[in-house]
Amino acid sequence: MRTLRDVAIGSTCKVKRIHGEGALKRRIMDMGITKGVEIYVRKVAPLGDPIEVTVRDYELSIRKGDAELIEVQE
């Protein structure tokens, strides 16, 4: 399974499915990461985690651990 964590910086991917449940999953989806949306991985924080992505035209930061819940295809 390829997840958002595996996507190289500077490339774009498409969300296939969000795993997990409850508060975390709802939060990820509330912020606009839903099935079929395009995500551009912009950069990684100076200490290596979290990452910054562009989704639905705005900037979002997400921890690598949480990014693993987001299954993507390129």
Binding site: L24, R27, I28, M31
Partner: peptide, 12 residues
């Protein structure tokens, strides 16, 4: 309890 997920907007 459930942790606040760190899915945070970086505003302009």
């Amino acid at each position: 309890g459930d942790p606040a997920p760190f899915v945070m907007e970086l505003p302009s």
